[in-house]
């Protein structure tokens, strides 16, 4: 079981800030494909991966990164701090 978190407009499109996801996905990209196949709201949120960033256990990562051992995955748009 993996905790998946969403922020900003990704959270708004998916409709929840976080959820526990049961998945066999080996990489972030696999997880995205898995989610997109579940419901339209995921397809809407993940339509353009170039507009998204991902963090694994609170560290920025790439979409081809493996998920082995990862407990928390977060998806969000490019950050706008400062």
């Amino acid at each position: 079981m993996m905790q998946v978190l969403y922020f900003a407009w990704v959270r708004e499109r998916i409709g929840v800030p976080r959820e526990a996801v049961e998945t066999e996905a080996a990489t972030v990209a696999d997880l995205v494909a898995d989610l997109i196949a579940r419901e339209d709201r995921y397809a809407a949120a993940f339509a353009d991966l170039s507009a998204l960033r991902v963090a694994l256990d609170q560290e920025l990562a790439e979409f081809d990164a493996p998920l082995a051992g990862v407990r928390e995955v977060a998806f969000f748009p490019p950050m706008t701090g400062g």
């Binding site: 900003a8 490019p78 706008t80 400062g82």
Partner: peptide, 22 residues
């Protein structure tokens, strides 16, 4: 901080809310 600290800004006006794009 602008592009590596996980903050997201939304501008609120009478027309609604707009996420600030990086």
């Amino acid at each position: 901080l602008k592009s590596r600290a996980p903050f997201w800004k939304k501008e609120i006006t009478t027309a609604g809310g707009d996420w600030v794009a990086a």
